[in-house]
Design a protein around this nucleic acid. Structure first.
Lengths: 135, 135
DNA sequence: CAGCATCCTGAAAGATACTG
DNA sequence: CAGTATCTTTCAGGATGCTG
């Protein structure tokens, strides 16, 4: 990782004003590296309604491939955000569920999602306008 | 042996329980496509303390290349999250600032960042444990 | 100073096929 | 059912050099 030359600019007190990157952005990096891929938040959001098995998940998360779902779930399990329970039955049954930590991610994600919903139109329009005046 | 009949899905009323993906994930997709790249949130966070010019920004966002900073800023401007003001001087001076909409993104981002800070250690440990038992 | 133009790479993700 | 195994594509992002 990178050492922090935060002292480069002693005169700027903005680190105190905005804790979002008080550590040089390491926190943001961490959370983004964790959840900013294409499927993680979607899977977490789907699991938010309760435990679910693989195929169910596959149906409920539109567009995800088996491969990506599999990878995403494994990472969630690895990070301690979801549990995987395999039942020794035939046919096999595997159920996924959020851990308390996984569930604690829902609220922050929801905040962001709400922001997205509220501002989506404005952003869309801003883009269109920008593209229109920029050939 | 049938275990308990996982009462998870009765039809699918979970869309009401969890607005995070009530639209099939389009909102999440939208916001992630917007801010989940490597630099956007960091730049927004940096601009949160006030308007800044290019080189200043370049110094304050550790690790960013000129190219990526330039691209990030252009996208922020395009999305209506930041403004770009060029002064007709020599040498040139260009200042960037957040728009109200851009500023409104800070709080949600902060929520997520806080979650990251709070849970980072647990996740790290979970990972280590997972990797240890998975050769 | 504030950038754009190029070239290049690795990692993420999609498509498809196969299995315990 | 619940996944792997491969192969291929894509493209974000880094490195470098040049300019108004």
């Amino acid at each position: 990782m990178e050492s922090e030359p935060t002292s480069s600019q002693a005169g700027t007190p903005y680190e105190r004003t905005c804790t979002i990157r008080g550590d040089g952005g390491r926190a943001i990096r961490a959370v983004l590296d964790r959840v900013a891929d294409k499927w993680t938040l979607l899977v977490v959001a789907t699991l938010a309604s309760g435990r679910m098995r693989f195929t169910e998940l596959h149906r409920h998360v539109p567009g995800v491939s088996q491969r990506m779902l599999s990878l995403t779930l494994r990472n969630l399990e690895r990070d301690g955000l979801a549990t995987r329970t395999a039942y020794a039955e035939v046919p096999p049954r595997v159920e996924y569920d959020l851990t308390p930590m996984g569930r604690s991610l829902i609220a922050p994600a929801l905040t962001l999602a709400s922001w997205a919903i509220e501002n989506n139109t404005d952003i869309e329009m801003s883009r269109a306008a920008y593209d229109a005046r920029t050939p």
